[in-house]
Design a protein around this nucleic acid. Sequence first.
DNA 1: GTTAAGCTAAACACCG
DNA 2: TCGGTGTTTAGCTTAA
Length: 359
Amino acid sequence: MAPMRGERGGSPARGARPSLPLPRKLIRQIARHVASSGRSLRRLEVSGRVIDNFDDIDDPSDESDMEVPQATVACGGNAGNLPPAEHDDDLTSLSWLQDRNLLRGINLTKGDVEDTKMIGSQVVIKSEPSKTPSPVARMPSPPRTPCKAPPSPPAVAAHTKPPYSFSCLIFMAIEAAPARALPVKEIYAWIVRHFPYFKHAPQGWKNSVRHNLSLNKCFHKVAAAPGLGKGSLWTVDPQHRASLLQAFGRQPIPPAAPDTPPPAKNAPDPQLFPYLARRLAASPPPAPTADEYLAAASVLTMKYGPAVLDQLPPAAHLVISRCVRDEHSYSGGCEERRTAEALLNLAGVPPRPPPPAPS
DNA sequence: GTTAAGCTAAACACCG
DNA sequence: TCGGTGTTTAGCTTAA
């Protein structure tokens, strides 16, 4: 029988481990990710540095995270009334980030893997029996010139429902607005602009947006601006901002990577589960968009404080800094950047200075 | 098994 | 009258 959640398990030696630069839960999530391909995590490296060896971290019944000294997690940068990271039990979002390769560069090494191959910044874990790269562990490399080639794949995203709830979409739209307030029509437009899926989605999604605005206490209607015509302006209630930010951490896990199709026997019957079937049918998943990178940075920061960003590999820093540098290539500022700034500011992350220009 | 959250659909009223 | 907006209700699925 598996131990109850919170029960201590595993070897006693774990308690004597050195401080981990990443929360143990995050490492466990990575271990599960590796385990999903039939492997087990034996060693973890971050940015080329061996963090720890552990033989039992892939035990799915082990839910303890008491070994993580909070001091190493540095939550002091949480903005405003954000809840402390230790209150958040849910790392679903992090599995999403891993699935989306947003934690690329974290070097996973399996004990019985004899070689970890680096191709550029792409990490390939070689499987001993088959000598073929693990489809799960194979991480695509980030753009070589991330500042020039932001990963915005509208052609793919057009067919993929974004992994955000409507409240998150509305939140992002409003936060991206200069006045932090938008009429419903502009919220529609922002969503369509950033998630082309909705361009051809059934009309019901607009109803869902309005339903969300009306029902969700996080959104408030304010007096209509003169000349606005029908409708009101909608804003985010500052008191509920933290809960909306937390909602980013509860996003559903998107479909598996294109080269790891789920077993057909697990495919939901579209007749019985139309919603789930539609969600899962939206594969292959698109490459992460700039907004997803930003959401990833924000989620990580919200959970563990800004210091966690310094524990991520340089590739992640590139991803984050890219959006700041993009500021210089846009005239007047794009909504993506505003979204980025809003999210990162809310998460307490100061903008990273652009790297020095090559001489 | 229960509960909460979220999605979808539908109906209705209000307003420009 | 029409279409957009806002509200409410109900049923469903999923995750905790």
